Each structure stands twice: as structure tokens, then as C-alpha cells.
Simulated assay, not measured.
Amino acid sequence: MRATTWTRRLALAGGGVAAGLLVVTPLAVADTTAPPAPPSSTAPPSSAVPVAPITLSPEESQQVCGDWVPKLQKRAKNLTDRINGGAEVAGSVANLKARSADQKAKGHTAAADRLQKRADKRQSRISQLSDATSKLDAFASAHCKPAGTK
């Protein structure tokens, strides 16, 4: 009985050391010889940093075009439909505004203000969703072949 307890403890300790080495090794190997460049006033903002191209294998490209792009397009469409829905659609801007008016009528101004802010923020998401949809469509037209072509 004693040997199995010690064996388990050694196995757990060895596993912990191995996991620790797996985490620490990439950090130790990372190249830190070049110091970061100091920010300059003429440098573009961080959001304007160019993005490196990504190379996909044919299998990965097929998975992206066959699985991910349609799922993301459907998700963006469903979110847009929900946001633009009527007052009876939970999560829509109209629903949040109706709930805000109801809370204001009951005298709960803090809750009404929170609901109104949520409605305003959700309305601003429409432009982000349309940008994402246009990017997905552009990617699909540029990189995804129709089912009948090779």
C-alpha cells in the first residue's frame, strides 16, 4: 500500500515538473535581444499596424471555406436580425428601449438609463456586423471556390 501511494506522488510530481518545463521553455527560448523601438510622434496608431499574410494548406482552406465562413455569415445575419427585431424580440434595440420606457414609467430611472445605454451600444454594433459581413463575403469570393469548380 505504501509503495503505490509514493508511486502516485512521484508520478504527480514528475507530471508537474514536466508541465512546468513545457510552460517555461518557450519563454526562455524567446528572442529578447532586440529592444522594442521607442514610440515616435510620427508613427501610425497601433490599429494601423500591417497584418502579415496567413498561408493555409488546401485542407485548412477547405475547412475555413466549408465550415467557418458559412457559420460566421449565419451568425452575423442572426445577430443583425435580432438587433433589428421588434419589441417582442428579446435582445433587440426596440425591446431594450421599450423596457427602458417601462422602467422610467415605474420611476426606476437608474435601470432605465442602463437599458437605454445598452440599446445605444447595441445599435452601434450594426455597423461592425455589416463590416464583418462584407469582409467575410470578400474573403469567400476571393478564396473559396464554388462547389462545382476545381
Rank of each mutant, 00 (worst) to 15 (best):
L12T: 04
T55D: 09
T25D: 03
P26R: 09
G91E: 08
V93Y: 01
K117T: 10
F139R: 01
Q62I: 04
L10H: 14
S57K: 11
P39N: 07
S100E: 08
R99E: 06
A11P: 00
A18C: 10
R118D: 15
G20T: 03
G16S: 07
A87E: 13
R8W: 10
V64C: 07
K77H: 10
Q63E: 08
P35Q: 11
K77L: 12
G20N: 01
K150C: 09
D120V: 03
A13F: 14
D67P: 04
L72W: 06
G15F: 02
D131W: 07
A112C: 10
P146Y: 00
V69E: 02
V64E: 08
L72T: 05
M1Y: 07
A101C: 08
I83D: 04
L136P: 04
V69R: 02
P45Y: 09
N84R: 11
G20A: 06
L21F: 06
T33M: 01
G148Q: 11
L129K: 08
T25S: 00
P45V: 12
D67S: 13
L22W: 07
G20C: 01
R2Y: 07
R9I: 13
A18Q: 06
V49K: 08
R8I: 12
P50T: 03
G85M: 02
A132P: 02
K104L: 03
T133D: 13
A94R: 05
A132I: 08
R9F: 13
G85N: 05
D31S: 00
V69H: 04
P38D: 00
